[in-house]
Amino acid sequence: MSAPYAHVIGDPIAQSKSPLIHSFWLEKLGIGGRYKSKLVEATGLGSYLEKHRHDGSWIGCNVTMPHKQAILPHLDVLDPVAAKLGAVNTVVRLEDGALKGFNTDAGGFLEPLVPALKTEHLFRMARIIGTGGAARAIIAALADNGFTLVVAGRNPAKVRALLEELAPEGEHHSIPITHFAEPTDFDFDAREGCFDLVVNASPLGMEGSPALAFDWSHAPPGAIAYDIVTNPIITPFLEGARKAGHPTIDGLAMLIGQAAIAFERFFGAEPPREYDDELRDLLTK
């Protein structure tokens, strides 16, 4: 049998940074595996999976747009998190050829927040912009960690439906995305003992897309700005946050975090995270 290999599949796929990340870790660990990108169109998704489930060297694939939900009917079993979210970004081939779907987006998103989440807070609130696949994972993850959510999207009715599906408990709020565009004179109360997040879970600010219109008067003092966009690394959203004095987390944090979970499922080894700074340098070249 040849060396184990995995893919990241999507359409388009050339922009994916996953091959660089996984290949970097494979080289550092001296594991004789391969990880490459593969263009898979919507009409070819079923045939791709059927072909590879019978290949003993193929250990699975990461899944990006537009397949995260379309892939569900082709899988034999779903991890509970993936089943709850209704989206899969990691497929693992089991020994009998069965295909199991996972979603590592939630775990990857939470990774840089873990130290803060270990602290008890009087109140946790997150303002989230976006309603796509990544936003679904973020909404569910933050609700499960005790956050009250204010979710903004172009269609508030869609936002409300998402909250009812993914975070049915708690007093969460749906608002139009334009709400955050204009300045506010709201006087935030004392935030001692509170944990506030402002998350861009949309493609706004990505290269080739309009910037997210967000006025930082809507963010409480000390709120962490978290942008999941990875190109550019420092988005206008994060630039605005820094100018307003807010700590920031960039999209590479989630990208590397979710990849680390998938890597261990694929190759059975923990990625060498002591090289994260070197990996970040490679990803930003």
Rank of each mutant, 00 (worst) to 15 (best):
S2P: 13
A3N: 13
A3P: 11
P4L: 04
Y5F: 15
A6V: 09
I9D: 00
P12W: 06
K17F: 12
P19G: 05
G30T: 09
I31V: 15
I31H: 10
Y35E: 04
S37L: 03
A42M: 12
L45D: 02
Y48S: 12
L49K: 01
K51T: 15
S57N: 06
G60Q: 07
V63N: 06
H67M: 04
P73V: 01
H74A: 11
D76E: 03
L78V: 02
P80T: 10
P80G: 08
A83G: 02
K84F: 02
G86I: 11
N89D: 00
V92I: 14
G97W: 06
G97M: 01
K100E: 14
F102V: 09
F109I: 06
F109M: 05
F109W: 09
V114L: 14
P115Y: 04
A116H: 09
A116T: 06
L117A: 13
A126M: 06
G130N: 10
I139F: 06
A143W: 07
A152I: 03
G153H: 00
K158R: 14
K158C: 07
R160H: 08
L163R: 05
E165C: 03
S174L: 05
P176I: 07
I177R: 10
A181S: 15
D187A: 15
F188H: 13
D189H: 12
D189F: 08
C194L: 10
D196M: 09
V199L: 08
N200V: 13
S202Q: 09
P203V: 06
P203T: 11
P210G: 11
A219M: 04
A219F: 03
A223W: 11
N231D: 13
N231T: 14
P232L: 08
P236V: 01
R242M: 15
R242V: 14
P247I: 01
I249E: 00
M254N: 02
Q258I: 10
I261T: 00
A262L: 10
F263Q: 00
F266S: 02
L279K: 07
K285V: 14
